[in-house]
């Protein structure tokens, strides 16, 4: 295994993280260091705890042991540096609102309590919509969007958070090829701006093309590091129990 030099900055540092439902561990003593400025995939079989890992970083799930730090601080202290893109199935798309309004929600964290979004926030939201190619649909009712468009809206909402770290839960699930290319293009752009992107990713075919790092997870962290070094048949077998080969 390649040893990291100790000089790099950790965007996310997970130490001895255990999450359990009653006595059933979902994540077991996971140590993961996500260096700043990388585009990292989190892969593993169903039930491996990928979403749980993301949610623990965000403090949405309380761990039974261990801790998570974002740039050396707890998530609560550093929440403005993190943007989260949940699975698009996690919300009700029949909610009475339009595309621009959903993207504006990404600004709420910066606004704090009570204060309403203003013109500057609207401009930022439109800029983000333009980046994901959805500006012309700003006033479209959200229940009229396709799967790919919904994912773009979520990505735009994360972009306006203007964060340092982006956590995305299966952004490529059930979307068209054009949207997938748009999204991965934007993620690579984010990386080139020095942002850190952590993506729950299922499709092992595209790992080498899309990501520079990968964490293979199956309740325990099997291995994490540069795709070129650790994305091997042997490691995949360890992760998927011989079910998947590459």
């Amino acid at each position: 295994m390649v040893t990291e030099t100790n000089t790099h900055v950790s965007a996310i540092k997970i130490e001895d993280l255990t999450v359990a439902y009653r006595d059933k561990p979902v994540l077991w003593d996971v140590d993961l260091d996500v260096p700043a400025g990388v585009l990292m995939a989190v892969s593993g079989p169903n039930g491996a705890g990928k979403t749980t890992l993301i949610k623990s970083i965000l403090g949405l799930i309380k761990p039974v042991a261990g801790q998570v730090q974002v740039f050396g601080m707890s998530y609560r202290q550093n929440r403005k540096t993190v943007a989260y893109v949940p699975q698009k199935s996690s919300v009700d798309w029949d909610f009475p609102t339009d595309v621009l309004d959903v993207v504006l929600m990404g600004r709420y964290g910066h606004l704090g309590w009570i204060k309403r979004p203003g013109k500057k926030d609207k401009d930022l939201a439109k800029e983000a919509l333009d980046k994901v190619g959805m500006l012309h649909l700003s006033y479209r009712q959200i229940n009229q969007l396709s799967g790919g468009q919904k994912q773009r809206v979520f990505l735009a909402r994360a972009l306006v958070q203007d964060a340092m770290v982006y956590l995305m839960d299966e952004p490529f699930q059930g979307i068209d090829a054009v949207t997938e290319r748009t999204i991965i293009g934007l993620l690579k752009e984010l990386r080139s701006l020095g942002k850190t992107v952590l993506v729950v990713h299922h499709d092992l075919q595209t790992v080498k093309e899309y990501f520079d790092r990968i964490a293979l997870l199956n309740i325990r962290l099997i291995v994490a590091g540069a795709v070129d070094d650790i994305f091997t048949d042997e490691n995949l077998k360890k992760t998927y129990g011989g079910l998947k080969t590459f």
Binding site: L60, P86, M105, K115
Partner: peptide
């Protein structure tokens, strides 16, 4: 604003504080 966000996306609402 808070009611709208937490109704539409409770997860994001919590992570945004």
């Amino acid at each position: 604003k808070e009611l709208k966000l937490s109704t539409f996306d409770p997860g994001l609402s919590t992570t945004l504080g």
